[in-house]
């Protein structure tokens, strides 16, 4: 599904990713853990095509295509999705209209018919229940005045309706209380499927109780410094990243 080879990327003049390699098969869920500032969000932005993140070496192949040359909207059409660590507020644009524009854009890209307003409402409501999102929230402007938990649930809703084949979840569990974490965890788990891969960036083992990963990687100083199964996450939670400081240096 996704093959990252020796990826180097810089922001401004600073090199953040320093030779990162990763291979994710279809249907797999990989977790990335790592200290603050390691480059996890940078990786998520490079994969989704944000301006200002310059790839200086390496490659990313997605479904056999060169991902890095695609515009962000093309990547979305091709099935790449990023749940933002800090979802962006869009004043004056209702969540419903935003979702509809997004879904119809990717459907159009994929050669599927666009939804009209009625059909779309039905389609969205199938997804909102499990995420405990009501119609009132859909009327509000995108992320404006949303609580932390609402923002993260809205990200998962976007993932659900956009039907990606590869999703990056950047700390979708951060700042959630136990109930919100369960809702998000169950929401994401429900989206697991044999032809959908996920890269779950997290600090905490607790999300991985819901979304049991096939592999866990440690990202430190712009590189993958360790890889293991789900037990690695449990170990990391206990011992922290101190052991990797040297490996990264």
């Amino acid at each position: 599904m996704l093959e990252i080879k020796n990826l180097h990327a810089k922001v401004g003049d600073t090199e953040i990713l320093k030779g990162l390699s990763l291979n994710i098969e279809a249907g797999q869920v990989h977790a990335i853990m790592g200290p603050n500032g390691a480059g996890k969000s940078t990786l998520s932005y490079v994969l989704s095509g944000r301006d200002g993140y310059e790839v200086t070496a390496g490659s990313v192949t997605y479904k056999g295509k060169d991902l890095l040359t695609m515009e962000p909207e093309v990547r979305a059409g091709e099935g790449v999705f990023l749940a933002f660590q800090y979802p962006v507020e869009i004043p004056g644009v209702s969540t419903m209209n935003f979702l509809k524009a997004a879904v119809n854009s990717v459907r159009k890209y994929r050669g599927e018919s666009e939804f009209d307003a009625m059909d779309f409402l039905k389609f969205v409501r199938e997804q909102t229940k499990i995420l405990n999102i009501n119609d009132e929230m859909l009327k509000r402007a995108v992320n404006v005045g949303f609580s932390g938990g609402e923002k993260k649930r809205a990200e998962v809703l976007q993932m659900a309706v956009l039907n990606p084949s590869f999703a990056v979840l950047d700390e979708t569990d951060s700042g959630l209380d136990v109930d919100a974490l369960r809702i998000v965890g169950e929401g994401v788990t429900a989206l697991r499927s044999p032809d959908r891969s996920m890269l779950v960036i997290t600090h905490y083992q607790r999300l991985l109780d819901y979304i049991v990963p096939d592999m866990v990687h440690v990202l430190a100083d712009g590189k993958i410094v360790d890889t293991g199964d789900k037990n690695l996450a449990i170990e990391l939670e206990k011992n922290g990243y101190a052991n990797y400081a040297e490996a990264a240096a």
Binding site: G49, D51, L82
Partner: peptide, 29 residues
């Protein structure tokens, strides 16, 4: 804002449409 524009584009919305949505949203308030 670049961030807002990127957010919309990352959801598949083409750049020109994304720009129009942002401007309209800004004014609609």
């Amino acid at each position: 804002e670049e961030t807002s524009l990127f957010y919309l584009r990352s959801r598949g919305i083409p750049e020109a449409t994304a720009r129009a949505m942002l401007v309209e949203g800004f004014l609609a308030e």
